[in-house]
């Protein structure tokens, strides 16, 4: 019985990772932001968010990490790895903390992830160009984070309802 449960979980994790990679691929095709190339929209957060709510933080972290490494090898380069890593680490940490407080819905947690995904990326861009002028783009990136986060959240709620 336990073994079946385990196998089911492994299968789900595989699916979620594949889903995360598809999302990463899609976002690698979208030139999200004129000002700062290499930046990503944060669509792949949807898979991480789902994993977090279906299985837990540890599993979500695993999916996130594997997705970042694999997608950077498959569809990107070194600088993309840096952006993905910063975005991934920031958004994961914030989603983890926000979920822990129990005060936010999935949508709220997702918006937090979206916003901090972009803040993480902006900090990498700042390290690359070392000019505070780059923060000129912060308002747009904050709003973009809210919007993608909101959409990811709404989709995650719908998917979760249909799975469980």
């Amino acid at each position: 019985m336990m073994a079946l449960q385990d196998r089911k979980k492994t299968a789900y994790m595989g699916l979620l990772l594949a889903f995360a990679l598809i999302l990463s691929y899609v976002e690698s095709l979208i030139p999200f932001f004129f000002g700062v190339p290499g930046m990503k929209l944060g669509l792949a957060n949807l898979a991480v968010l789902l994993t977090m709510y279906l299985f837990g933080a540890k599993e979500a972290f695993t999916i996130n990490f594997c997705r970042i490494v694999i997608s950077s090898f498959l569809f990107g380069n070194m600088s993309m790895l840096l952006y993905s890593l910063a975005g991934g680490v920031f958004s994961f940490a914030v989603m983890f903390l926000m979920k822990k407080t129990n005060r936010f819905s999935i949508t709220g947690v997702s918006m937090g992830g979206g916003v901090f995904h972009n803040i993480g990326q902006l900090l990498v861009a700042f390290c690359v160009v070392r000019t505070e002028g780059i923060f000129y783009y912060m308002p747009v990136l904050l709003i973009a984070g809210i919007v993608t986060g909101f959409l990811n959240g709404v989709i995650a709620i719908a998917v979760r309802r249909n799975i469980t």
Partner: peptide
């Protein structure tokens, strides 16, 4: 397993705070 609420008060506060910060910047 908790009920999935689409939106909660804290979500709104969070989004609002981010909007305010964006406008300030």
């Amino acid at each position: 397993q908790k009920k999935d609420k689409r939106f909660r008060r804290s979500d709104l506060l969070f989004a609002g705070a981010i909007f305010v910060i964006a406008i300030m910047v």
